[in-house]
């Protein structure tokens, strides 16, 4: 009745197979990169070993970790603000039809505004400060979170609300025990999207309007034509996102939605 037993033998072997395939892909890409770098100047395409050396020196100086953490903290701050505003906003718009219909056009319009435009506004308003990337992340993440939470409120099953009524739940208890768990999957997919977008646009904002962070260092390295540094920062930020995805978001999702049929298999 519980875990299906017929697939018990396969996951371990398929997981090893997947790891082998992924390693193979990575080695292939590095080999292609290395071959291409032989035919080009280092400032156009630096070789993998040169970039690796640069990564080691950046890590040894503490520069790498400091800037990654700076950018991450800004993404998290903008993301947290988007959650704090977006979750109640989405619930409000979803539970009040008049309000929802009135504000509906705002979200797609917000989504069409390029992050570069938000960054320029932010520079005008906040100058070269940490607030600039935070604002850009907020403006990018907010419509995504509001839209998903809004959709989530509309997907709440009226039968469960009726059940809460027969159990004489207060409004607060109905919200916490029926609405929140119903909305959570929608919120989670919205938040994940918003976090990924937020990370990308934060780099844009930092290249334009910050004096620290990965985006700033990328811009600096490109201005000085230190292409190996540009590659090093790029690889570092990709690695960080992969670690967050595999180490945090995927297990969290598996845990939160373990009750779902599809997630278990």
């Amino acid at each position: 009745m519980r875990a299906p037993a017929d697939t018990a033998g396969t996951p371990a072997t398929s997981r090893t197979g997947l790891a082998l395939r992924r390693t193979g892909l990575l080695l292939l890409l590095i080999a292609l990169w290395w071959a291409a770098s032989l035919a080009t100047a280092p400032y156009v395409l630096p070789s993998p070993d040169r970039v690796a050396q640069r990564l080691v020196t950046l890590a040894a100086s503490g520069d790498l970790v400091a800037n990654l953490l700076t950018t991450l903290s800004r993404v998290l701050a903008g993301f947290a603000l988007a959650v704090v505003i977006g979750v109640p906003g989405g619930i409000l718009l979803g539970s009040n039809r008049t309000l929802g219909a009135f504000f509906e056009p705002v979200l797609p319009v917000m989504n069409t505004v390029s992050s570069a435009i938000w960054a320029i506004f932010a520079i005008i308003w906040f100058g070269l400060s940490p607030l600039t990337p935070i604002f850009v992340v907020l403006m990018t993440a907010l419509p995504l979170i509001i839209t998903n939470v809004w959709q989530g409120t509309q997907a709440v099953n009226a039968d469960y609300v009726e059940l809460a009524q027969t159990l004489r739940f207060s409004r607060l208890k109905t919200l916490l025990k029926i609405y929140v768990p119903s909305i959570l999957p929608y919120f989670f997919s919205g938040a994940r999207l918003a976090f990924g977008f937020g990370w990308r646009v934060s780099l844009v904002a930092e290249t334009l309007g910050a004096s620290s962070g990965v985006g700033y260092r990328l811009r600096q390295a490109s201005d000085l034509i230190q292409t190996d540094q540009v590659f090093a920062w790029t690889i570092a930020q990709i690695a960080m996102m992969v670690v967050i995805e595999i180490g945090l978001l995927a297990p969290l999702e598996r845990h939160l939605f373990r009750w779902r049929r599809d997630v278990r298999s």
Partner: peptide, 9 residues
């Protein structure tokens, strides 16, 4: 209820 109305989560 007519359906079992169990919360899936």
């Amino acid at each position: 209820f007519q359906d079992d109305r169990l919360l899936p989560w």
